[in-house]
Amino acid sequence: MARQSISFTQPNDEWLKSQVDTQEYSSKSELVNDLIRQARNQQIEIDWIKAKLDKAENSGFSNDSKEQILAQAKSIIND
C-alpha cells in the first residue's frame, strides 16, 4: 500500500476524528480510502449517465423506459 502524507483543514480534520471516535472507522486512513472508493464509484455512475445522455442526444430517442434506465443505472452501481 502506498504511504502518503496529506494535510487537512481544521474542520475536516475534526470531522475525520469524530468519525473515527464513533468507531465507524478504525483510522483516518480507512475513512479517506472509503471516501475515495465512494467518489470513484460515483464517477463511474456519472460517466455512464453522460454516455447514455450523449447516445440519446445523438440518436434522437431511446426505446428504454425510465424504469429500464433506472434499473440499468442501479445494476452498474451494485456491480
Rank of each mutant, 00 (worst) to 15 (best):
A2E: 08
A2I: 10
R3S: 09
Q4T: 10
Q4E: 09
Q4F: 13
Q4L: 13
I6Y: 08
I6A: 07
I6G: 05
S7Q: 06
F8Y: 05
Q10G: 06
Q10V: 02
Q10T: 07
N12G: 05
N12V: 00
N12C: 02
D13T: 05
D13I: 00
W15S: 04
L16V: 14
L16K: 03
K17Q: 11
S18E: 10
S18C: 09
Q19W: 05
Q19V: 08
V20G: 03
T22H: 10
T22M: 11
E24K: 07
E24Q: 08
Y25P: 01
S26A: 12
K28H: 01
S29C: 07
E30A: 13
E30W: 00
E30D: 12
E30V: 01
E30G: 10
L31A: 05
L31R: 01
V32P: 01
V32L: 15
V32S: 00
V32R: 01
V32N: 01
V32Q: 04
D34N: 04
L35T: 00
L35R: 01
I36K: 02
I36G: 02
I36Q: 03
R37Q: 02
R37T: 14
R37N: 00
Q38W: 05
Q38K: 04
Q38F: 03
A39I: 05
N41H: 10
N41A: 12
N41I: 09
Q42W: 06
Q43Y: 14
I44T: 13
E45Q: 10
E45S: 15
I46T: 15
I46L: 12
D47T: 10
D47F: 04
W48L: 15
W48Y: 14
I49A: 09
K50C: 14
A51Q: 12
K52N: 15
K52S: 15
K52D: 11
K52A: 14
L53K: 11
L53C: 11
L53R: 13
K55E: 12
K55T: 12
K55P: 10
K55V: 14
A56E: 07
E57I: 12
E57W: 11
E57Y: 12
E57G: 12
S59W: 04
F61G: 03
F61L: 06
F61Q: 07
F61N: 07
S62E: 02
S62F: 11
N63A: 05
N63S: 04
D64N: 11
S65K: 03
S65W: 06
S65T: 13
K66Y: 09
E67T: 08
Q68H: 10
A71L: 09
Q72C: 02
Q72Y: 07
K74H: 11
K74W: 02
K74S: 12
K74L: 15
K74T: 08
S75T: 13
I76Y: 03
I76K: 00
I76V: 12
I76N: 01
I77A: 07
I77D: 03
N78A: 12
N78D: 14
N78M: 12
